[in-house]
């Protein structure tokens, strides 16, 4: 009983071993603690929507989150609409400088105490990402291992490669509009998610509601 009490409460979710694509829609269930999870996909595939929903889950759960924004793309209004508590997050704007983003993630993980760390390198080009040595990602994996932190990487393609414990590939399916032309708003965007690591045959369909209010 005593051992159960002194066990870090926030690491309990690491015990859930079986994680599949469906967990993507269940809060932080798909993103194991103490490991790197990658959300991969092209533009408009729902990477940011999923990441912001995780941000909301973490901050409303009382955890402190960090968003390391390589391309200065983060929108606080979207995050607030997703339910995130902006007062419980640290936003690091790296000004399109990938090296600074990687250093910032390293510092944040070594500092400790952050429940969720999101590295957003969606805007970085392949030419910028390719030269990052794998050893750097091993260093980051070592920093996150054994901690109750979740490291979530948003990117077009896998950057952490072998160091990522989970990889989900997102793809866009359908964009639905509502209202009368020409003053329409995006009603919802449907996505598909495939678990590439661990490999899963299933495809899960996700959908996100539109950003604008209907007129």
């Amino acid at each position: 009983m005593a051992a159960a009490l002194v066990h870090p409460l926030c690491s309990l979710s690491t015990r859930a071993q079986r994680i599949d694509c469906l967990d993507l829609t269940r809060g932080l269930g798909a993103t194991p603690r103490g490991a790197i999870t990658e959300l991969l996909g092209q533009e408009s595939t729902g990477r940011t929507a999923l990441a912001q929903s995780y941000l909301a889950t973490a901050t409303l759960g009382g955890e402190i989150a960090a968003w390391v924004d390589c391309g200065d793309a983060f929108d606080p209004v979207s995050a607030a609409k997703a339910g995130a508590d902006l007062g419980k997050m640290l936003w690091v704007r790296c000004g399109h400088r990938l090296e600074i983003a990687l250093k910032a993630v390293d510092m944040i993980l070594h500092s400790g105490g952050f429940g969720l760390v999101i590295l957003d390198v969606c805007g970085a080009t392949d030419a910028a990402l390719r030269p990052v040595p794998l050893s750097y990602w091993y260093r980051i994996r070592r920093a996150v291992e054994g901690t109750p932190s979740i490291l979530l990487v948003l990117s077009r393609q896998s950057v952490a490669r072998a160091c990522a414990t989970r990889q989900f590939v997102l793809d866009q399916a359908k964009l639905e509009w509502r209202g009368l032309a020409p003053f329409q708003t995006i009603a919802r965007r449907k996505f598909q998610a495939i678990s590439r690591k661990p490999m899963s045959a299933g495809v899960v369909a996700l959908e996100a509601l539109g950003d604008r209010e209907e007129v």
Binding site: G46, A49, T57, L60, F74, S78, K88, C122, I186, G210
Partner: peptide, 19 residues
């Protein structure tokens, strides 16, 4: 802080700025 009760939320489309 103590955790707030997390209500089930729909996924919302996020906006990404080009700055």
């Amino acid at each position: 802080a103590n955790p707030s009760p997390v209500a089930s939320r729909s996924l919302r489309l996020a906006f990404r700025y080009f700055r």
